[in-house]
Simulated scan of single mutants.
Amino acid sequence: MSHTAHIPSHRKPRRSASKLAVRAGVAGGVLSTLAMAGTASATPVEPVTETLEMPVLNMDLGSEVSSAVTTAADNSRAAAVEGELNAQEENARTGAAAEAKKAKEEAQKKADAEKKAKEEAERKAAAERASRNDGRSSLSSKSTSDEGGSTSDDSANDSVATGSAAAIVSFARAQVGKAYVMGATGPSAYDCSGLVRAAYKQANISLPRMSQDQSLQGTKVSLSNLQPGDILYWGSRGSAYHVAIYVGGGKFVGAQNPSTGIVERSLSYDMPTGAVRIL
């Protein structure tokens, strides 16, 4: 072993070739600058033109950017189309609702108009029928007067109402002029069976409420053998749809319909189907 081996070396470490090259480059640059400055007064300085080079995009990066732009554009178009479809759908719903409402209103107006026309036709028909029957009654009375000078009608053989029959007939005639109302039983309005039932109540006789049942009461009698107080019915017995009270003299009192109300009419006004006698 050397006798100097224990003494640490003071030699500087070697610099790497790259570092030396950098330093050499820097020194060379400085010397070149000084040399140019020294000759600046003698030699005119040429303008330095530098060319800047734009960075070149990596092809893969350009593809990714292009793809992202395309995707964003597609998404924008899809959103616009969806928004347009939603708007059209909402408009369609609104339009359908409006059309349905309009159709319903028109249907209701048409139904109301038809109902009104039907009621008007029924009123006119009832008025014409009443006018014709009144005309026939007048002609019949005139003919009888001209022939025999008498005001008696075809039922001159009717007996005079007495007792319970008189009470029934008197009550029925007292209601003439009042209103006809379906289901009414008095005292200001009646329907047909309600009037008959109320009249018989004056004689302390209780009758069923409905015309069908009233036509089944008592004994069936011929229309040529009527007496005051008999119940007249229209339709078949047991299925009658209308009833009235025979008051004598070939006439009856009945609650006819909403147009006429309660009236006293000749049998020829509306000939009944049959009659029953309860008294």
Score class of each variant (00 low, 15 high):
residue 234 W to P: 07
residue 224 S to Q: 08
residue 242 H to E: 01
residue 186 G to C: 10
residue 249 G to A: 11
residue 156 A to S: 11
residue 150 S to C: 08
residue 78 A to W: 02
residue 270 D to M: 07
residue 226 L to M: 07
residue 18 S to A: 09
residue 263 V to W: 01
residue 134 D to Y: 12
residue 28 G to I: 09
residue 38 G to S: 07
residue 143 S to N: 10
residue 182 M to K: 11
residue 118 K to M: 02
residue 121 A to L: 09
residue 259 S to G: 04
residue 178 K to G: 08
residue 166 A to K: 08
residue 14 R to F: 09
residue 135 G to T: 13
residue 161 A to P: 00
residue 77 R to D: 03
residue 173 R to D: 04
residue 45 V to D: 04
residue 63 S to R: 15
residue 213 D to W: 07
residue 252 F to P: 02
residue 243 V to C: 09
residue 240 A to P: 01
residue 198 A to H: 15
residue 32 S to W: 14
residue 78 A to I: 05
residue 112 D to A: 14
residue 259 S to E: 07
residue 184 A to H: 03
residue 167 A to M: 12
residue 127 A to V: 09
residue 144 T to Y: 06
residue 34 L to P: 11
residue 147 E to T: 03
residue 196 V to I: 12
residue 132 R to Y: 07
residue 126 A to I: 05
residue 98 A to G: 12
residue 103 A to V: 10
residue 83 G to K: 04
residue 177 G to S: 04
residue 50 E to I: 06
residue 53 E to H: 14
residue 165 A to I: 03
residue 37 A to P: 07
residue 214 Q to P: 06
residue 152 S to D: 01
residue 163 G to H: 12
residue 177 G to Q: 12
residue 154 D to F: 08
residue 64 E to R: 11
residue 245 I to E: 08
residue 179 A to R: 14
residue 210 M to P: 11
residue 46 E to N: 03
residue 170 S to R: 10
residue 140 S to A: 06
residue 256 Q to D: 04
residue 144 T to Q: 11
residue 60 D to K: 11
residue 15 R to L: 12
residue 122 E to G: 01
residue 212 Q to F: 00
residue 161 A to S: 10
residue 213 D to N: 03
residue 272 P to T: 10
residue 266 S to W: 06
residue 103 A to H: 14
residue 215 S to V: 08
residue 148 G to T: 09
residue 37 A to G: 08
residue 83 G to N: 12
residue 279 L to T: 15
residue 115 K to F: 15
residue 123 R to K: 05
residue 235 G to E: 01
residue 147 E to M: 09
residue 164 S to G: 04
residue 88 Q to P: 00
residue 123 R to H: 10
